[in-house]
C-alpha cells in the first residue's frame, strides 16, 4: 500500500508558526542534518515563547546559508562568510535585536574565520549555530577547514593532508561565553543547549556535527544518512565542561559532545552603552 504525503496545513506541526510556509519544501537533501538543526532551533523558540519580532536570523553562503530564509522572522542572507560581521552591525546599531547566525563550517571558519574570532573576542551578543558537515556542500563537496585527516573530497581526491580546526576549541580560545557541540542525532540535547544559549547574553557558539550523505559521507563510504546517524550514536560521548582543546572529533574513535563552556563576561553592547551613558552625562 502506498501513502501520499499529507499536505501541511496550519496548526498541524508545532513549529509551523516559526516557519515561512510559503518557502516549503526546503532545498536540503534527505538525511542532511540541517533540517534537524532548524527544527531544534524552531522548537527552542517555541518552548521559550521567544519574542520573534526581536529575532534576526542571519546566514552566509552554502547549504546552511539558506537557513535564514526559512524562519518567519526578520532574516538576511549575506555574502559568503559575512553573517557574523552583519550580525555585529545589527546588534550594535539596535541592541534590542537578537541576532542568530546559522551557517556552515566553511562559511564561518574559512572565509568568515576572522569575523568569528573577533566577534567572540569582543563578546558581541549573538548565537552562532554552526552546522559542520566537513565539506562545502553547495559547490559539490570540496575540502574545508574542518575536513578530517585523510578524508576524500573532490578537491582532496587523494586524501586531505591539512590539519582541521577543532571548532569548539577555536570558539573557546576566542572568548565565547557559551560553547557546545552536538551531533544531528542529539536533537533534544541540542534544543536544550539552544534554549540555554538564547537566554544568555554574549557570544554563544554551538557546533552541530551533521551528515552530508550526498557528498562528504558518500565520498568517504560512510553509507546512508541513517548509517551515519548510527555511527554518531556509537562514537559520541557526552563530556560536559571538558577542556574544548581535548574535545576530540574523530570518525574512527569518538566524537566528544556536550556543553564545554558556560561563563560570564561583560558583553560588548552593554559596555558600549555604559561608556556612552557616562560620556553623555559629562
Amino acid at each position: 500500500m502506498t501513502t501520499t504525503p499529507k499536505t501541511i496545513t496550519e496548526g498541524e506541526h508545532p513549529i509551523l508558526d516559526y516557519i515561512r510556509r510559503d518557502r516549503l519544501p526546503h532545498i536540503f537533501c534527505s538525511a542532511c542534518g540541517i533540517g534537524t538543526v532548524l527544527n531544534a532551533f524552531a522548537n527552542a523558540l517555541r518552548s521559550l515563547n521567544y519574542d520573534i519580532d526581536r529575532l534576526v536570523v542571519i546566514s552566509g553562503i552554502g547549504c546552511t546559508g539558506r537557513a535564514s530564509g526559512y524562519f518567519a522572522a526578520d532574516g538576511y542572507h549575506t555574502t559568503h562568510g559575512r553573517a557574523i560581521a552583519f550580525a555585529s552591525g545589527v546588534k550594535v546599531a539596535n541592541p534590542d535585536l537578537n541576532p542568530v547566525v546559522i551557517s556552515g563550517d566553511g562559511d564561518l571558519f574559512a572565509i568568515g574565520g576572522n569575523h568569528f574570532i573577533h566577534a567572540a573576542r569582543r563578546n558581541v551578543d549573538m548565537l552562532v549555530l554552526c552546522i559542520n558537515n566537513f565539506n562545502y556542500g553547495m559547490t559539490g563537496g570540496q575540502m574545508g577547514p574542518t575536513t578530517p585527516d585523510s578524508a576524500i573530497t573532490v578537491t582532496s581526491p587523494d586524501g586531505n593532508i591539512e590539519h582541521p580546526f577543532n571548532l569548539v576549541s577555536v570558539a573557546a580560545a576566542s572568548g565565547a561565553v557559551f560553547v557546545a557541540r552536538w551531533t544531528a542525532l542529539h536533537a533534544r540535547r541540542l534544543t536544550k543547549s539552544i534554549e540555554k544559549a538564547l537566554q544568555k547574553k554574549g557570544f554563544k557558539f554551538i557546533e552541530v556535527i551533521s551528515p552530508c550523505p550526498t557528498l562528504y559521507d558518500r565520498y568517504n563510504r560512510h553509507g546512508s544518512g541513517l548509517d551515519v546517524m548510527k555511527k554518531y550514536r556509537e562514537l559520541s560521548v557526552i563530556r560536559n565542561f571538558t577542556d574544548p582543546m581535548k574535545a576530540e572529533i574523530d570518525y574512527r574513535t569518538r566524537i566528544v559532545c556536550g556543553e564545554f563552556v558556560d561563563t560570564e563576561k561583560p558583553e560588548f553592547t552593554d559596555l558600549l552603552a555604559k561608556q556612552a551613558e557616562t560620556l553623555q552625562q559629562r
Partner: peptide, 10 residues
Amino acid sequence: TAVVGASYSG
C-alpha cells in the same frame, strides 16, 4: 558589512 546590518536595523 556591519554598516549594511546597522542600516537594516533602522
